[in-house]
Amino acid sequence: MFERLKPHFPWITLFALAGIVGAANPSFFNPGGLALLVSDIVPLFIMALGMTFAIYIGGIDLSVQQIANMVTVIATVFLAPLGIGVAVVAIAAGLAFGAAAGFVTSRMYVPSFVSTLALGFVALSIAKWLSGQRALSMDAAMREESFAWMFGVTAGVPHEMVIAAALLAFAWFLQSRTRFGRALKAVGAGELAAVASGIGVDRVKIAAFAISGAFAAIAGLMFSVKLSGGDANLANGFLLLAIVAVLVGGTPLTGGVGGVLNTAVGTLIVMVIRAAMVYLEIDATQQQMVFGLVLIAAIALTIDRSKLRGVVK
């Protein structure tokens, strides 16, 4: 019974939480406010979307927050000379960092939590060096010219939501309809069988981490444009929430099940919890306590203990 219900937990949780918050505070369902809440969470969602690929193969990407930090600086510094071309540089940087983490993990046998943690510090350091440890502001005119489209509203729909939906559709297609997606599933669910079937497991892993890095860069870019600046600490606080979004969405740390749609649900759960904490007047400094505990609960509920063979270190 429990096992049969398990795949449905994320959306049941979402509706239950939204119901509770809505009952306590009916203004929660006010469309304008809701659209604002959703738009606010888009950069986090994009980061979580990328992270899903890393977790789906049974790894994790701890570098996403630092890649996003680095990208906010890159975007701010190079916006003036490059204009919209800075997006290409930013995404390429994220892709490169992710691919490097994938290479270190698959070819050098460094577990992904270490390889991404280490490369995350490299990214952070680049951000600090490039920004001179100062909070930088974007050139207002260039920002308007190159990226104003990101934050417009068409027919009542914020463009951020359209971007999020488009990236979700892209990620879903990649995961469900392509050879890469199938190989990804095989690596996540049974890596040794994938190896024995001649799947290029290393390449799949490198690609999964590269996607995670690229999505983190897109998240950083959006966040930077949104706040109109860059800073080596700008995206701090994203990492925990991105992991929570993936995990409460139902993609377990052991990989192989769940996926990007789960992460969409998971992000909305994070959003509702965050909104609830605002209504409950929980101080911002205390919110990470809640998310830390939610993360542990989510992992404990979703992890596939049969894959761990009783060994956890």
């Binding site: 190989a183 599933k185 095989a186 669910a189 040794l192 069988a193 994938a194 799947i199 099940v257």
Partner: peptide, 22 residues
């Protein structure tokens, strides 16, 4: 080790059959 290297548990029959011929 059929269950470890032979089949991918969590993937269905056709996904397993085509795994080597994607």
């Amino acid at each position: 080790e059929r269950k470890v290297e032979g089949i991918v548990a969590g993937m269905n029959v056709h996904e397993n059959m085509t795994l080597a011929q994607l």
